[in-house]
């Protein structure tokens, strides 16, 4: 196990709104090492996207405030960096991919221009990206790099494609371009926020395979933010399940999915229809997500949880290791009898 690439420690985030202060992140902790693909999964409003945006410091403050917590990237606390220092990290050390490949490319500029601009900006902070080339040389090197990157993400005839505009590309191709753009500065950490949600399943499968390949080649760490547990199962090495601003269960994907210990993780999984689900037998989750301005005391899932007792309504449960080799924040985790030992 290598050094931690990213370490989020007890991160709290509040947002001031018209109705009051919303406690959006309530002590999120997460550690990502090189070679790991972390799936951060949860339903709308659970704070998964804001966790990702907080890492690249793209949450506007105000309205956001960070009352507590630290985000360490290779040991440096990102919370104490200036805008300028952060800008140098974004694109070169931390790359991001967002959900909608259509709105994240400039429709009036050629694909090549956009890729080259990113390469030149990255080289401004780390000249080794274009092997120290300057001026006209740098532009030529950036163009060559753009071609190589497009080839790497599986776009054929890449050199000619540089002169295409985004509208000439399909959704899957655009997402490939965005991945190429995020990787051009050779980041060590890639944050992908719902990168395949807007795509068809067959294209999704290709993009996820591409991501896995890239992680293996570049020895990066990845945070894949998604609402789709199927995507996590297919792609990630680790998973963090979030609910209402808290990480409630973390660990290697196989352990968490085979033996989910948190009642919320189980409920989330039971809500997905599978081959075996009979008509009418799908289990929805009763109740609604809590109001983050007046969250329930203690465990935020307690009001919807059928295992909740008095203790759950007192204090938020700490993360504790389970027998299955992962961690769960629950006073009454579901412990399955060991089938293997029987």
């Amino acid at each position: 196990m290598g050094e931690a690439l990213l370490q989020i420690d007890d991160l709290h985030l509040t947002m001031s709104s018209f109705d009051g202060l919303a406690h959006v992140l309530n002590g999120v902790s997460l550690t990502v090492r090189r070679g790991e693909i972390w799936g951060v999964v949860g339903e709308s409003g659970c704070g998964k996207s804001l966790t990702g945006l907080s890492i690249s410091r793209l949450v506007q403050s105000p309205p956001a405030r960070y009352p507590a917590g630290a985000i360490r990237f290779e040991g440096r606390n990102l919370m104490s960096l200036s805008q300028r220092e952060m800008q140098a990290l974004r694109g070169t050390r931390i790359g991001m991919i967002f959900q909608d490949p259509t709105t994240n490319l400039n429709p009036t500029l050629k694909i090549g221009t956009q890729l080259i601009d990113v390469a030149l900006a990255a080289a401004h902070h780390d000249s080794s990206i274009l092997s120290g080339a300057k001026g006209r040389e740098a532009r030529r090197a950036a163009r060559a790099l753009a071609v190589r990157m497009l080839e790497q993400v599986g776009i054929t005839d890449a050199a000619a494609r540089l002169d295409s505009y985004p509208h000439e590309f399909s959704g899957g191709m655009r997402q490939r371009v965005l991945i190429a753009m995020a990787l051009i500065g050779r980041p060590d950490l890639l944050i992908a926020d719902e990168p395949t949600t807007a795509l068809d399943v067959s294209v999704q499968a290709q993009i996820l395979a591409l991501l896995r390949g890239i992680v293996a080649d570049h020895d990066m760490g990845v945070i894949l933010i998604t609402h789709n547990l199927g995507v996590v199962a297919q792609t990630c090495s680790h998973v963090a399940v979030m609910y209402a601003g808290n990480v409630v269960e973390t660990g290697p994907v196989a352990q968490v999915i085979d033996r989910p210990a948190h009642p919320y993780t189980r409920a989330l999984m039971a809500a997905i229809p599978t081959r075996e689900t009979r008509r009418g037998e799908l289990q929805g989750l009763a109740g609604t997500v809590p109001d983050l301005i007046r969250p329930p005391p203690g465990c935020r899932f307690a009001p919807r949880c059928n295992r909740a007792t008095e203790i759950c309504r007192g204090q938020f449960p700490a993360m504790t290791p389970t027998a299955a080799g992962h961690s769960v924040a629950c006073y009454h985790p579901v412990i399955e009898r060991e089938v293997a030992s029987a």
């Binding site: 399943v201 067959s202 999704q204 199927g230 997905i272 599978t274």
Partner: peptide
Amino acid sequence: SAAPEVRVP
């Protein structure tokens, strides 16, 4: 085959 699936234990 492209559709990801999660099996519920």
